[in-house]
Structure formats: C-alpha cells, structure tokens
C-alpha cells in the first residue's frame, strides 16, 4: 500500500447507554489518493464507520488518525476543510437553487459572519462545470432527478476542497447509467489526488471502481486489503451468508449469485 491517510486502531463504537458494540476491534490503514469501498450487508456498521471518520460520532474505544494526527484533536473547521461527506440522500425543506446549494460547500473556508465572495462563486461554478452540471445552476435542488441530485451533492463536497471524500451508499437508488456516471466521477477524483471512501452493499459497485476493499459483517472486519485479494468467492460468501461466485471478465472481478434452483 501507498502512504496511509487514515489509520484506524482497535476501533469500537456503541450508542449511548448501550453496551452492545456496533463496531468492534476495527484495525485498518486506508491509503491516500485511492478509492476504498466498504462492502457489507445492511446493518454491518458501514454507515457508523463513515460517521466516525467524519467526526460526527466519537469512538467508544480505539482511535482514528488522519494524516498522522488523532481525529479527536482536530477542530470542527479543520475537519471540514479535510473531509467532505456525501449523504445517501438529503431532504431539503427549501427550494435552494443548485448554485446556492453547492455554494454551501465553501462554508469551511468562510468566517461565520461572512457571505460568499466573487471567488467562492467562481469556484463553485467551476465545480459545477467540471461535473457537467452548469446548465442546472439556477434550477431548484428539489426538481432534480436522483442521479443529478447525487452529482450535486458531490459537487458541494468538492467545493470544500477536501483531501478525503466520504460517501454513504452513493449508488444505491440509481439506475445503471447514473451509477456508471457517479462511479466514473469517483475514479476521476482519485486520479486528481482525492482519497475516496464509499460504503455500498453492492459488490458490483465495489468491484468496478475500488482499488481497496473492506469487507464488513456485524460490526467486524471480515477482510481488508487490495481488491483482487479480498474479493474472493469464499470471503463474499462468508460476509453475505449465501454462496456466490467470482469470475474474471477482461481482468476485472465480477460477482455472480449461485442460484441452485434455476
């Protein structure tokens, strides 16, 4: 692996007043400027892990280091300049325009009493253009399709100019073409030096995009490391509790369900 941006040591997490550990004994190194997929069934603790990396939840035990410094020692502003987050979906009560919405990504670089400057506006427009969204700038975010909305959320995250981009189930509700578009965008970002971590319960999304894979089940890591090493039929079967096959197509792994009744 290349230099680690994130190192997690013996991480455990439990919700308040509950002794049941949602995450238990996670130890991981996540490399810089690459894509890591966190794959596992629903309830594996993937989203909890993302929320801890974001700083939103505090570890119950163990530690997370970002660029060699304990996450707990960053201020809120420092974190928001390093780490951006794309939620699975986001409800907005108000009809913000796409431009206003993406402009909010500039907040980490602005004072609490500041309003956006001309530069903030120009930068935001550049991010919209880079993702092919400039024609939507004055449209309401509530009128967008699922794929457009996800891209707008990514654009807002990029306006933060983060080193680390965390995405929670970015392709879950999308059709095939939008899924392809989002995953291609993530690959392009990694090539530009952004470290990308995304959760998914879809092995296909992980296999087609990620260089590194973390397999999780019931709050524990089943296996982690380079994709080709971790994405095996045996480990996937263990993670999901059903038999699967992994075949190679043009040198890429593809996951197939073993349906014995067919």
């Amino acid at each position: 692996m290349t230099k680690a941006l994130i190192s997690i040591e013996n991480l455990g997490f439990a919700y308040d007043g509950d002794h049941h550990l949602v995450l238990d004994g996670l130890t991981l190194e996540l490399p810089e400027a690459s894509i890591t997929a966190v794959l596992g069934p629903n309830g594996a603790g993937k989203t909890t892990l993302i929320h801890i990396l974001l700083g939103l939840l505090k570890p119950y035990k163990g530690s997370v280091h970002l660029a060699g410094r304990n996450l707990a020692h960053f201020t809120r502003r420092e974190l928001s300049r390093m780490i951006a987050f794309v939620p699975q979906s986001e409800y907005t009560a108000f009809e913000f325009s796409v431009l206003e919405y993406v402009l909010m990504g500039r907040a980490p670089h602005m004072g609490i009493l500041q309003t956006p400057t001309r530069e903030d506006l120009d930068q935001t427009l550049e991010h919209l253009e880079a993702l092919g969204l400039n024609h939507l700038a004055t449209r309401s975010v509530r009128e967008l399709s699922g794929g457009e909305r996800q891209l707008v959320l990514i654009a807002r995250a990029l306006a933060q100019e983060p080193k680390l981009l965390l995405l929670d189930e970015p392709t879950t509700h999308l059709d095939l073409s939008n899924k392809g578009r989002i995953l291609a965008t993530l690959s392009a970002l990694a090539n530009q030096g952004v470290t990308v971590i995304f959760t998914t319960h879809d092995p296909e999304a992980a296999a087609s995009t990620a260089a590194y894979l973390v397999l999780m089940r019931q709050g524990k890591i089943v296996s982690s490391g380079a994709l080709e090493r971790v994405l095996t039929a045996e480990r996937l079967s263990e993670t999901y509790g059903i038999p699967v096959r992994v075949v190679q197509v043009d040198g890429h792994p593809v996951v197939l369900l073993n349906n014995h009744n067919r």
């Binding site: 987050f85 939620p87 909010m104 990504g105």
Partner: peptide, 27 residues
C-alpha cells in the same frame, strides 16, 4: 443579519451541517 448566509447550513441535515463545519448546537 450578520449570520444571514450561515443560517442556510442549519436548514440542512445535522450530518451535512456538521460536515460543512457548522457548530450546529452553538449556532
């Protein structure tokens, strides 16, 4: 009036406002 732009962040979800650096509780 001074916080007029910042107020927008608080209308988003808690996680998003947090990830954008808002001290949601205090603000």
């Amino acid at each position: 009036i001074l916080m007029r732009w910042r107020i927008n962040l608080l209308s988003l979800s808690e996680q998003t406002a947090f990830s954008l650096g808002s001290q949601t509780g205090r603000e």
